[in-house]
Design a protein around this nucleic acid. Structure first.
Lengths: 204, 204
DNA sequence: CATCTATACGGAACAATGTTCCGGATATCA
DNA sequence: TGATATCCGGAACATTGTTCCGTATAGATG
């Protein structure tokens, strides 16, 4: 992260990656690392040792740290990637499903995302400044994704009007929070209620 | 934690503490450790190293681990103690203040408790089984504490009726959650609103 | 195809921290 | 005062995040 002080590099190349020249093995390893991290985080939680991830990726720890200078950078990258995947699903559902079904399908996708990211929630609450930007990214990607489906459904008269995507996201996330007295199917039931509520006052 | 397998110990003495005979220095050290832990957790967060706590208590790590076999046991003990302190304050306020003022004073105390235990919230959300019982203890102590004050205030006609202590606790805790766009005085303002709401429909 | 160099890799080594172990100190009792 | 159950201190061990550097190699060049 040290920048050379020559007069010509204030605008252009600092690192090979930024010059667009990345060795093929580097790119491949970065991909392996991300896949491995997702797998290990899913099975052992976000607190899994870095070495486990490196081993799963078939790579040394040095390589891991070359791509992700801090452990939190890896966590961040995985989160970002999964937020993206969830957001991108909206476009697919919007294309392939009826307006209301698209909203419903996406909300289920969203619940699944939230439920598998419990350890991550802990990281957020920990106050580690490395994760400060995540909530903003979460909102930046997921809000428009849902709002688009909502607008389409409202335009089609399939759901009531005046719904705020952010409020739905927050509410659904909140009842996905862990509780000791309810079963794992609880969030799904609550979401069903929610979705029925959405269309209860639909004009059409 | 290993129990000897003799036939006579199924009902009685297993450890000297359970026989009621604890050496004075042991009891004193346990107290020092708790005080030290509270101080260190408050200044460096709940992730502070065990050695720091031992040093603050003027004690070796071995001693710390004798009293708290796991790090989480120490955290647990501190939490329990602070929950107790908060709950016990209700009796004091109930004795010394007018019914409504008692409720108000305790709610402020509760907010203060919640605000200083942010790192702890992270521990809870982490899913570590060591902390599984904490929410139940939280509810067991705090619910009756507030309910008592609420009942007294309602009986005196100082607040509206039908309030559920648990709902108030949950709601207040929820707006004490960290948010990046509000100042530190936000919870206090919200609580003020809440308290005004409490007496708005009071009969007297 | 051979050579060369910037780039990337692997894993040993280091540092911080939770946990265990045991020789020695000491409170308590007779 | 002496015996002994109990407790203490801190060195040692295990795990995990992070750094370092000698080695390997992708990709360019001839």
């Amino acid at each position: 992260m040290v920048r050379e002080t020559g007069p010509e590099d204030t605008t252009a190349e600092a690192t090979p990656a930024e010059r667009g020249r990345v060795r093929a093995d580097a790119r491949r390893n970065l991909d392996e690392l991300l896949k491995a991290a997702m797998k290990v985080f899913a099975s052992k939680g976000v607190d899994a040792p870095v070495r486990d991830i490196a081993k799963e990726a078939g790579v040394g720890v040095g390589t891991l740290y070359r791509h992700f200078p801090q452990r939190s950078d890896l966590v961040l990258a995985v989160c970002t990637r999964e937020i993206d995947a969830c957001a991108d699903a909206a476009a697919t559902f919007g294309d392939e499903l009826q307006p209301f079904e698209a909203v419903s399908a996406w909300m289920n996708r969203y619940v699944q995302f939230i439920m598998t990211k419990r350890g991550l929630a802990a990281a957020l609450y920990s106050g580690d400044p490395a994760y400060q930007g995540l909530p903003a990214y979460f909102e930046k990607r997921l809000h428009p994704a849902l709002q688009g489906l909502l607008d389409a459904a409202e335009a089609a008269g399939a759901i009531r009007s005046g719904l705020k995507a952010n409020e739905l996201l927050r509410a659904v996330a909140s009842f996905c929070a862990p509780a000791q007295d309810v079963g794992p199917e609880y969030p799904a039931r609550m979401l069903e209620l929610f979705m029925d509520g959405l269309r209860y006052r639909a004009p059409a």
